Simulated assay, not measured.
Amino acid sequence: MLEAVQLSRTDDVTGTTLLHPCDLTLARGERLVVTGPSGSGKSVLMRALAWLDRPQGVLRWHGHAIDRARVPAFRAAVAYVRQRPALFDGRVEDNLRVPFELHIHRHRRYERERVLAYLAHAGRDATFLEQRADDLSGGEQQLVALVRTLQLAPSVLLLDEPTASLDPQTTLAVEAMIDGWFEHTPQAAFAWVTHDLAQARRVGRRFATVHAGVFATSPPP
């Protein structure tokens, strides 16, 4: 599905190497967990895989190299959920409707029942949709960002510490939500960055580390 060949990133201003050249593949059914210390380059790797920061090297989707023209369709299938989500003014439901205003999703429609099914995993009901985005806690914002992504049925999730601001109970609920997406999405795979080694063992089947910008496969933590 997703293949990176000698993928790397350097700082555009200083020329500092942020991610050393690495090879990585994500096949259907894979659950890759990436661990490593803060500032080691894990987020740099995720953003490069999502083509948010244009990397050096080659990135392929189903065997085809990604270029600028292919990026919108690629990002519709390979979704990046970042550590600090960006929400818009308005209600939670307003934020969840935003992706359907984009040209790439013009053939889709917002499905409230699907959204409520995802929220139920995290103990939220329809009243949550009416809350103002600027009244949400950091953890609730992360929850909204994740549901906003899952409702679009991506094939691959690039998860950059999606539960970092959540309490233990909600963290387990989000893990169950992602597991449900995984089981019901054809061609599903994910790469999940976490500092929580217990979480890594719960959700991962394949493991890797990033240290000082060097990506390497690893045994289970």
Rank of each mutant, 00 (worst) to 15 (best):
L19H: 06
D12K: 10
F215W: 03
W192S: 14
L158K: 04
R82M: 12
R108C: 10
P154K: 07
S40H: 04
V144G: 07
D67S: 13
E101G: 13
R97M: 08
R205E: 14
T185N: 11
A212I: 00
F100Q: 03
G57R: 02
R108H: 11
V156W: 12
T194N: 08
F190H: 02
V13L: 10
V92S: 04
A200K: 04
R114F: 04
V44I: 08
E130L: 09
V81R: 02
G138R: 03
L24T: 01
E93T: 07
Q83K: 13
A48F: 04
D12Q: 11
T194G: 08
L166D: 05
V203E: 05
T127A: 13
N95H: 11
D196R: 10
R109M: 06
R68Y: 03
M177Y: 02
D134R: 09
R84M: 10
A153T: 14
A65P: 08
L157G: 05
S8C: 08
Q151W: 09
A173D: 12
G180V: 11
Q141L: 13
A86Y: 14
L52H: 05
G15I: 01
R124V: 01
H121D: 00
R84P: 05
D94E: 12
R112F: 09
R108K: 12
F100M: 04
V81L: 06
S40V: 04
V78E: 00
A176Y: 07
A189N: 03
G15Y: 00
P154Q: 12
H20L: 08
E175V: 05
D160Y: 03
L158S: 07
C22A: 15
W192P: 00
V58E: 14
A216L: 01
V147C: 00
D89I: 11
S155D: 11
T35N: 07
L102W: 01
D179Y: 05
T35I: 10
A48C: 11
W51K: 09
R28M: 09
R47A: 01
V174Q: 10
T149M: 13
Y80P: 06
S38A: 12
A65V: 15
T14G: 03
A191D: 04
P221G: 15
